[in-house]
Amino acid sequence: MSNPWPTSETILRADGIHKSFHKGSEVPVLRGVDLQVARGEFLAIVGSSGSGKTTLLHILGTLDRPDQGEVHWRGERLDNQSTSARERFRNKSCGFVFQFYHLLPELNTLENVLVPRMIELGPMSYWRQKKKLVQRATELLDRVGLSHRLTHRPAELSGGEMQRTAIARALLSEPEILLADEPTGNLDAETGQSIFGLLSELREEARLTLVLVTHDVSLAQRADRTCRLAQGVLVTSHTEFRPRATIFAG
């Protein structure tokens, strides 16, 4: 029997997520978000500015903790794991792509891509595996069309090139899930389309699960499934994965 892809196996689940920020008074951002992401699924979360999309993504990626609710990764509770376990999750299982690329200015393109493995490995292990790692990073940069920019620093790259570098960095550790926070938000429409296309292609090549946060509805429509976040609540509550389903509520 062939292995269906995407599958209906839930890889990431959020149950009743609440999150508030305290700026003088309490500002509730998420008011009970339930979400299930299937392995291999391309999920787009849309919503207006300040709707809590990024906060939700940070909670899913263990960059932040919910005030209430639970996050499960492959059936195991993730949000209450130890700090080191959550660091391991971010380093190995999950790749991040940010709106503002967040490349380290002192490092060149190749070195920026290698950062996750530099964090994971000690100096001796890194030096032992360096040849293999550089080869993998070079292949990734070649795949995102930056093989001619290996030794350039971020200051010498365009916005699109920086985002391509950030995508290559996110894929270096061969994560199971990619969390992308407005990856095209800081780019012009044409470059944004190109980056989005690249993400889609890479997802299919690497059989990745992709959760993308955007306010661009036209991009979100190209995802397998789209959810809208409004008033701190995820308006859809579909637990079953439905390819190319676009569900807008409210």
């Binding site: 960059l63 700090t83 190995k92 991040f96 967040h102 996750p116 964090i119």
Partner: peptide
């Protein structure tokens, strides 16, 4: 600050 945040987001520990 931003670089430190990125390193932590990519799995660097506070001790690191």
């Amino acid at each position: 600050t931003r670089d430190i945040g990125l390193l932590k987001a990519l799995g660097a520990s506070s001790t690191g």
